Simulated scan of single mutants.
Amino acid sequence: MDAESSPPSPAKHPSLPLFIFLGGIILLLLLIFILISRKVIKRTKQRPVTRDIVSGSLRTISYFNFETLKKATKNFDQLNVLGRGGFGPVYLGKLADGRLVAVKKLAFEKSQQGESEFLSEVRMITSIQHKNLVRLLGCCSDGAQRLLVYEYMKNRSLDLIVYGKKDILLNWGTRFQIILGIARGLQYLHEDSHIRIIHRDIKASNILLDDRFQPRIGDFGLARFFPEDQAYLSTAFAGTLGYTAPEYAIRGELSEKADIYSFGVLVLEIISCRRNTDLTLPSEMQYLPEYAWKLCERSMLTDLIDSRIQRDGFVEKDVLHAVRVAFLCLQPEANQRPPMSEIVAILTCKVELETMPSKPAFLDRKKRNDEKISFDSILEPFPSPIRSDSPSFPRHLK
């Protein structure tokens, strides 16, 4: 065989350098892919497991696995308890990315929800968005575990300040900001949301404050989604005594006017910086709405105002205007209480107050031994509204 017909030497094969080059590129890409995959796996382990449970035009929230929230709250350490709602405790948590969150652990025996019902309710809560409502970040449904993850509010709940558990003095401007923000949040729930919602548990501990003391309504565990074609629902009582409207507590008639009554009590608490019921005080001072009205009848309503803001400087007529609005919210008959949109307008002086308030409804406390007693007590008689030109109408409200 001559040299010309012999096969070419492998060393001299013209495609060999190209194969080596391509093989090197492929090997390099494979190494890069492996490195990136390891980083992604590592980050996935550090981050909460999430999936989109809200679609369409609504905001997406995260689905957290239970172990992530357990780690974030240090195994639900009692030292991390921020508060306790009607359906379970709320814990401070810190996620792997450094975010602080509030984790509400629902008591399963009280919630009695399967995963589909729980996620359906979460979707509903997520669909309502307003600057004066606490923002839901995510949830967890793992076996019997039901947890809600909310944004963390730096100044925590209003009751810590109003009841003196936290050494913070709020001036009148900040207190009015809180009152107005709560009113606007309730207006959204009752009138402006795509679904009509009654909170059912408006009270100081369910009002959270951000770093600028802007209020956010929280704890929707008792909220009811209300049919548009019904004036009220007949339902068993649920809520907190002292804030509860008489028609709801006694007859089980629930409407948005129950929230409005609770708002009226809360306004008096914010102004006076005391609990709505305090049985350690003298008899006539024990129930705040009753005491406030008695001061009003004696033209001594300024005695209701927290003495610390009196020293701090405030415009007396502005505070008394807010008290007047509170009395409107506490009217004995539900149809006498204005809707929240009107209350907001009155608070901001966009609408003049036309209907003068009558004596608020409050319970006969003769048989009451503590706040937890059931509503078997008799309401004081519902008086007819007092005319503003009547001698008996307090001059402070004229």
Rank of each mutant, 00 (worst) to 15 (best):
D159L: 08
Q336A: 13
L119M: 10
L320Q: 09
R368E: 12
A96Q: 07
V149H: 05
T44M: 13
A326W: 02
L100R: 14
I305R: 04
T44F: 09
I182Y: 01
D210H: 03
A144P: 04
Q46L: 12
L82T: 11
S55Y: 12
I20M: 10
K372R: 12
D142Y: 15
L379M: 14
P8F: 06
A322E: 03
P282K: 09
M124V: 12
F21K: 08
Q46G: 00
R146F: 04
I61V: 15
F87V: 05
R84I: 10
S341T: 12
R196Y: 06
P383N: 00
D318M: 01
S6E: 10
K366V: 05
T235A: 00
V54Y: 02
F64L: 06
A204T: 10
P215H: 07
S157N: 14
I178K: 03
R216E: 04
G264K: 06
H321A: 05
P332V: 08
S37G: 13
A72T: 01
L320R: 09
Q286D: 00
G164W: 02
L330T: 01
I217W: 03
L69F: 02
L266R: 07
F226W: 07
S127D: 00
I250V: 15
K39R: 15
K317E: 13
L31M: 11
L95P: 01
I386E: 02
D312F: 03
D2L: 07
W172K: 01
I346G: 01
H396N: 15
Y291T: 03
L353M: 15
S205C: 04
G313W: 06
C140T: 06
L169M: 12
L304T: 10
L82P: 02
L27S: 11
S272K: 03
L137Q: 14
D376N: 14
F21R: 09
L133Q: 07
L295K: 07
L304A: 06
K74N: 15
T302P: 07
I197W: 09
R274A: 06
E191I: 08
L31F: 11
Y152T: 05
L186I: 01
L22M: 09
L320E: 05
L268N: 08
S299W: 05
P8K: 04
Q214A: 13
L330R: 00
S6V: 11
Q112W: 03
R196G: 01
K203Q: 08
Y248G: 07
S272R: 02
F362A: 09
S120I: 01
Q46F: 01
C329A: 06
F314I: 13
L148R: 05
N171K: 10
E380D: 09
S116G: 02
G86V: 03
K12A: 14
R47L: 14
L69M: 02
G218V: 09
I36F: 15
A326Q: 04
A245L: 10
E284W: 02
Y188N: 00
Q129A: 08
G143K: 08
S392D: 15
S141G: 11
K372T: 14
R275N: 11
S5E: 13
E290K: 14
